[in-house]
Design a protein around this nucleic acid. Sequence first.
DNA 1: CAGGATCCAAAAGGATACTG
DNA 2: CAGTATCCTTTTGGATCCTG
Lengths: 128, 128
Amino acid sequence: MKDCTLYKTMDIIGKRWTLCILLELHKGNGKKHFNELKYMLHSITPKTLSTRLKELQDHGLIKRDVESDSTPVRCNYSLTESGEEFIEIISHIKKWGLKWKFENEICSESDCQKCGIRQISDPQCSTQ
Amino acid sequence: MKDCTLYKTMDIIGKRWTLCILLELHKGNGKKHFNELKYMLHSITPKTLSTRLKELQDHGLIKRDVESDSTPVRCNYSLTESGEEFIEIISHIKKWGLKWKFENEICSESDCQKCGIRQISDPQCSTQ
DNA sequence: CAGGATCCAAAAGGATACTG
DNA sequence: CAGTATCCTTTTGGATCCTG
Protein backbone atom coordinates (compact mmCIF):
# COMPACT_ATOMS: atom_id res chain seq x y z
CA MET A 1 0.00 0.00 0.00
CA LYS A 2 2.75 2.40 0.95
CA ASP A 3 4.60 2.06 -2.33
CA CYS A 4 1.61 3.03 -4.45
CA THR A 5 1.89 6.03 -6.73
CA LEU A 6 -0.98 7.66 -4.91
CA TYR A 7 0.59 7.50 -1.52
CA LYS A 8 3.96 8.58 -2.81
CA THR A 9 2.31 11.58 -4.36
CA MET A 10 0.34 12.39 -1.26
CA ASP A 11 3.48 12.16 0.84
CA ILE A 12 4.90 14.96 -1.23
CA ILE A 13 1.98 17.27 -1.63
CA GLY A 14 0.05 16.49 1.54
CA LYS A 15 2.42 18.36 3.82
CA ARG A 16 1.66 21.67 5.42
CA TRP A 17 2.69 24.74 3.41
CA THR A 18 3.35 22.78 0.24
CA LEU A 19 0.18 23.87 -1.51
CA CYS A 20 0.66 27.41 -0.31
CA ILE A 21 4.11 27.51 -1.86
CA LEU A 22 2.96 26.06 -5.15
CA LEU A 23 0.13 28.55 -5.31
CA GLU A 24 2.39 31.43 -4.45
CA LEU A 25 4.70 30.49 -7.29
CA HIS A 26 1.72 30.05 -9.59
CA LYS A 27 0.27 33.45 -8.81
CA GLY A 28 3.34 35.50 -9.62
CA ASN A 29 4.97 36.08 -12.92
CA GLY A 30 6.80 32.85 -12.40
CA LYS A 31 9.82 33.72 -10.29
CA LYS A 32 10.11 34.46 -6.62
CA HIS A 33 12.96 34.86 -4.20
CA PHE A 34 13.33 33.13 -0.88
CA ASN A 35 12.48 36.14 1.25
CA GLU A 36 9.71 37.10 -1.09
CA LEU A 37 8.07 33.74 -0.46
CA LYS A 38 8.75 34.06 3.24
CA TYR A 39 6.97 37.40 3.23
CA MET A 40 3.95 36.18 1.29
CA LEU A 41 3.57 33.13 3.52
CA HIS A 42 4.03 35.39 6.47
CA SER A 43 3.98 32.88 9.28
CA ILE A 44 6.33 30.36 7.74
CA THR A 45 9.77 30.02 9.26
CA PRO A 46 12.88 29.92 7.06
CA LYS A 47 13.59 26.38 8.14
CA THR A 48 10.22 25.10 7.06
CA LEU A 49 10.29 27.06 3.83
CA SER A 50 13.73 25.75 3.08
CA THR A 51 12.66 22.19 3.77
CA ARG A 52 9.58 22.44 1.57
CA LEU A 53 11.46 24.07 -1.28
CA LYS A 54 14.04 21.31 -1.17
CA GLU A 55 11.36 18.62 -1.20
CA LEU A 56 9.64 20.23 -4.14
CA GLN A 57 12.89 20.55 -6.04
CA ASP A 58 13.80 16.95 -5.32
CA HIS A 59 10.50 15.88 -6.78
CA GLY A 60 10.76 18.14 -9.75
CA LEU A 61 7.79 20.42 -9.12
CA ILE A 62 9.84 23.57 -8.80
CA LYS A 63 13.22 24.73 -9.94
CA ARG A 64 15.81 27.00 -8.37
CA ASP A 65 17.93 29.39 -10.40
CA VAL A 66 20.73 31.43 -8.94
CA GLU A 67 21.24 34.88 -10.39
CA SER A 68 24.91 34.63 -11.16
CA ASP A 69 25.52 38.33 -11.48
CA SER A 70 24.12 39.45 -8.17
CA THR A 71 25.67 40.21 -4.83
CA PRO A 72 24.50 39.11 -2.42
CA VAL A 73 23.20 35.89 -3.91
CA ARG A 74 19.63 35.81 -5.15
CA CYS A 75 17.69 32.68 -5.95
CA ASN A 76 14.69 32.46 -8.20
CA TYR A 77 12.12 29.78 -7.55
CA SER A 78 9.57 28.85 -10.17
CA LEU A 79 7.23 26.05 -11.13
CA THR A 80 8.37 23.40 -13.55
CA GLU A 81 6.03 21.91 -16.11
CA SER A 82 4.92 19.22 -13.68
CA GLY A 83 4.39 21.85 -11.04
CA GLU A 84 2.18 23.85 -13.35
CA GLU A 85 0.20 20.77 -14.21
CA PHE A 86 -0.25 20.05 -10.56
CA ILE A 87 -2.09 23.33 -10.23
CA GLU A 88 -4.85 21.68 -12.22
CA ILE A 89 -5.28 19.07 -9.53
CA ILE A 90 -5.54 21.82 -6.98
CA SER A 91 -8.29 23.34 -9.12
CA HIS A 92 -10.18 20.08 -9.00
CA ILE A 93 -9.84 19.87 -5.25
CA LYS A 94 -11.15 23.38 -4.97
CA LYS A 95 -14.03 22.60 -7.29
CA TRP A 96 -14.94 19.59 -5.20
CA GLY A 97 -14.59 21.57 -1.99
CA LEU A 98 -16.88 24.29 -3.28
CA LYS A 99 -19.48 21.84 -4.49
CA TRP A 100 -19.60 20.02 -1.17
CA LYS A 101 -19.60 23.15 0.95
CA PHE A 102 -16.08 23.30 2.23
CA GLU A 103 -16.18 26.96 1.49
CA ASN A 104 -15.96 30.37 2.96
CA GLU A 105 -16.99 33.75 1.73
CA ILE A 106 -13.73 34.34 -0.06
CA CYS A 107 -13.21 31.06 -1.84
CA SER A 108 -16.82 31.02 -2.93
CA GLU A 109 -15.80 33.64 -5.41
CA SER A 110 -15.08 32.16 -8.76
CA ASP A 111 -11.65 33.72 -8.69
CA CYS A 112 -10.23 33.62 -5.21
CA GLN A 113 -7.77 36.44 -4.66
CA LYS A 114 -6.21 34.68 -1.78
CA CYS A 115 -5.39 31.33 -3.29
CA GLY A 116 -5.13 32.55 -6.86
CA ILE A 117 -7.00 29.59 -8.25
CA ARG A 118 -9.77 30.25 -10.66
CA GLN A 119 -12.72 27.98 -10.16
CA ILE A 120 -13.30 25.53 -12.94
CA SER A 121 -16.59 26.39 -14.51
CA ASP A 122 -17.25 23.49 -16.86
CA PRO A 123 -17.37 19.78 -16.21
CA GLN A 124 -14.34 19.11 -18.40
CA CYS A 125 -10.73 19.34 -17.35
CA SER A 126 -10.06 22.96 -18.00
CA THR A 127 -6.46 23.94 -18.35
CA GLN A 128 -7.49 27.25 -16.86
CA MET B 1 -4.82 31.68 3.82
CA LYS B 2 -5.83 29.15 6.40
CA ASP B 3 -9.56 29.66 5.93
CA CYS B 4 -9.47 28.98 2.21
CA THR B 5 -11.55 26.15 0.78
CA LEU B 6 -8.40 24.51 -0.49
CA TYR B 7 -6.71 24.32 2.83
CA LYS B 8 -9.83 23.24 4.60
CA THR B 9 -10.19 20.44 2.12
CA MET B 10 -6.57 19.46 2.38
CA ASP B 11 -6.85 19.38 6.16
CA ILE B 12 -9.44 16.71 5.78
CA ILE B 13 -8.05 14.57 3.03
CA GLY B 14 -4.35 15.19 3.47
CA LYS B 15 -4.02 13.05 6.57
CA ARG B 16 -2.33 9.69 6.67
CA TRP B 17 -4.65 6.75 5.99
CA THR B 18 -7.51 8.87 4.75
CA LEU B 19 -7.04 8.08 1.08
CA CYS B 20 -6.47 4.43 1.93
CA ILE B 21 -9.78 4.29 3.71
CA LEU B 22 -11.68 6.02 0.92
CA LEU B 23 -10.16 3.67 -1.63
CA GLU B 24 -10.95 0.64 0.46
CA LEU B 25 -14.56 1.70 0.64
CA HIS B 26 -14.57 2.43 -3.07
CA LYS B 27 -13.17 -0.95 -4.02
CA GLY B 28 -15.76 -3.03 -2.25
CA ASN B 29 -19.39 -3.44 -3.03
CA GLY B 30 -19.96 -0.36 -1.00
CA LYS B 31 -20.15 -1.54 2.57
CA LYS B 32 -17.45 -2.57 4.97
CA HIS B 33 -17.29 -3.30 8.66
CA PHE B 34 -14.82 -1.83 11.10
CA ASN B 35 -12.71 -4.94 11.47
CA GLU B 36 -12.92 -5.58 7.79
CA LEU B 37 -11.29 -2.22 7.14
CA LYS B 38 -8.79 -2.86 9.89
CA TYR B 39 -7.84 -6.09 8.21
CA MET B 40 -7.50 -4.61 4.74
CA LEU B 41 -5.38 -1.73 6.03
CA HIS B 42 -3.41 -4.21 7.99
CA SER B 43 -1.03 -1.89 9.82
CA ILE B 44 -3.61 0.64 10.94
CA THR B 45 -4.46 0.70 14.62
CA PRO B 46 -8.07 0.78 15.77
CA LYS B 47 -7.51 4.17 17.33
CA THR B 48 -6.35 5.73 14.10
CA LEU B 49 -9.03 4.01 12.05
CA SER B 50 -11.67 5.17 14.47
CA THR B 51 -10.38 8.72 14.33
CA ARG B 52 -10.27 8.81 10.54
CA LEU B 53 -13.72 7.30 10.17
CA LYS B 54 -15.12 9.90 12.50
CA GLU B 55 -13.46 12.72 10.61
CA LEU B 56 -14.76 11.44 7.31
CA GLN B 57 -18.26 11.10 8.71
CA ASP B 58 -18.14 14.58 10.16
CA HIS B 59 -17.26 15.94 6.76
CA GLY B 60 -19.82 13.88 4.95
CA LEU B 61 -17.58 11.72 2.80
CA ILE B 62 -18.68 8.46 4.36
CA LYS B 63 -21.67 7.22 6.25
CA ARG B 64 -22.09 4.73 9.05
CA ASP B 65 -25.06 2.41 9.28
CA VAL B 66 -25.68 0.13 12.23
CA GLU B 67 -27.25 -3.23 11.45
CA SER B 68 -30.10 -3.11 13.93
CA ASP B 69 -30.85 -6.81 13.91
CA SER B 70 -27.40 -8.11 14.72
CA THR B 71 -25.70 -9.22 17.91
CA PRO B 72 -23.04 -8.21 18.48
CA VAL B 73 -23.36 -4.87 16.82
CA ARG B 74 -22.19 -4.52 13.22
CA CYS B 75 -21.53 -1.23 11.49
CA ASN B 76 -21.45 -0.67 7.77
CA TYR B 77 -19.27 2.07 6.40
CA SER B 78 -19.75 3.31 2.87
CA LEU B 79 -19.01 6.28 0.68
CA THR B 80 -21.54 9.05 0.31
CA GLU B 81 -22.08 10.86 -2.94
CA SER B 82 -19.39 13.40 -2.14
CA GLY B 83 -17.05 10.60 -1.18
CA GLU B 84 -17.60 8.87 -4.49
CA GLU B 85 -16.95 12.09 -6.32
CA PHE B 86 -13.78 12.55 -4.42
CA ILE B 87 -12.50 9.32 -5.92
CA GLU B 88 -12.27 11.24 -9.19
CA ILE B 89 -9.79 13.61 -7.65
CA ILE B 90 -7.75 10.68 -6.51
CA SER B 91 -7.79 9.47 -10.08
CA HIS B 92 -6.38 12.78 -11.22
CA ILE B 93 -3.65 12.66 -8.62
CA LYS B 94 -2.77 9.19 -9.77
CA LYS B 95 -2.74 10.27 -13.39
CA TRP B 96 -0.43 13.13 -12.57
CA GLY B 97 1.79 10.90 -10.48
CA LEU B 98 2.10 8.40 -13.28
CA LYS B 99 2.85 11.03 -15.86
CA TRP B 100 5.58 12.58 -13.77
CA LYS B 101 7.10 9.31 -12.69
CA PHE B 102 5.90 8.93 -9.17
CA GLU B 103 5.24 5.36 -9.99
CA ASN B 104 6.12 1.82 -9.23
CA GLU B 105 5.66 -1.40 -11.11
CA ILE B 106 2.22 -1.96 -9.71
CA CYS B 107 0.64 1.42 -10.10
CA SER B 108 2.02 1.73 -13.60
CA GLU B 109 -0.60 -0.76 -14.59
CA SER B 110 -3.61 0.93 -16.01
CA ASP B 111 -5.77 -0.77 -13.39
CA CYS B 112 -3.92 -0.99 -10.12
CA GLN B 113 -5.15 -3.94 -8.11
CA LYS B 114 -3.78 -2.53 -4.92
CA CYS B 115 -5.33 0.87 -4.91
CA GLY B 116 -8.31 -0.02 -7.03
CA ILE B 117 -8.11 3.11 -9.12
CA ARG B 118 -8.29 2.76 -12.83
CA GLN B 119 -5.98 5.11 -14.62
CA ILE B 120 -7.70 7.78 -16.62
CA SER B 121 -6.89 7.15 -20.24
CA ASP B 122 -8.23 10.21 -21.98
CA PRO B 123 -7.51 13.88 -21.38
CA GLN B 124 -11.05 14.58 -20.28
CA CYS B 125 -12.44 14.11 -16.82
CA SER B 126 -13.53 10.52 -16.97
CA THR B 127 -16.02 9.45 -14.39
CA GLN B 128 -14.30 6.08 -14.55
C1' DC C 1 20.16 37.44 0.79
C1' DA C 2 19.58 32.63 1.37
C1' DG C 3 19.58 29.54 4.19
C1' DG C 4 21.92 26.13 8.07
C1' DA C 5 22.14 24.73 13.16
C1' DT C 6 20.16 24.03 17.41
C1' DC C 7 16.67 23.52 20.63
C1' DC C 8 12.02 22.82 21.85
C1' DA C 9 6.77 22.28 21.85
C1' DA C 10 2.87 20.24 19.92
C1' DA C 11 0.57 16.85 17.54
C1' DA C 12 -0.03 12.69 15.24
C1' DG C 13 -0.02 8.11 15.33
C1' DG C 14 1.38 3.29 17.02
C1' DA C 15 1.12 -0.59 20.82
C1' DT C 16 -1.46 -2.66 23.92
C1' DA C 17 -5.11 -3.63 26.95
C1' DC C 18 -9.74 -3.23 28.00
C1' DT C 19 -15.19 -2.68 27.60
C1' DG C 20 -20.41 -2.40 26.41
C1' DC D 1 -17.87 -6.56 17.03
C1' DA D 2 -16.72 -1.96 17.42
C1' DG D 3 -14.64 0.62 19.37
C1' DT D 4 -12.24 3.48 23.91
C1' DA D 5 -8.33 4.42 27.19
C1' DT D 6 -3.71 4.86 28.27
C1' DC D 7 0.91 5.31 27.35
C1' DC D 8 4.62 6.28 24.55
C1' DT D 9 7.46 7.14 20.23
C1' DT D 10 8.03 9.66 16.18
C1' DT D 11 7.31 13.34 13.35
C1' DT D 12 6.58 18.00 12.39
C1' DG D 13 7.24 22.40 12.59
C1' DG D 14 8.13 26.81 15.17
C1' DA D 15 11.70 30.11 17.57
C1' DT D 16 15.94 31.84 17.57
C1' DC D 17 20.53 32.60 16.39
C1' DC D 18 24.18 32.28 13.21
C1' DT D 19 26.95 32.41 8.60
C1' DG D 20 29.03 32.36 3.66
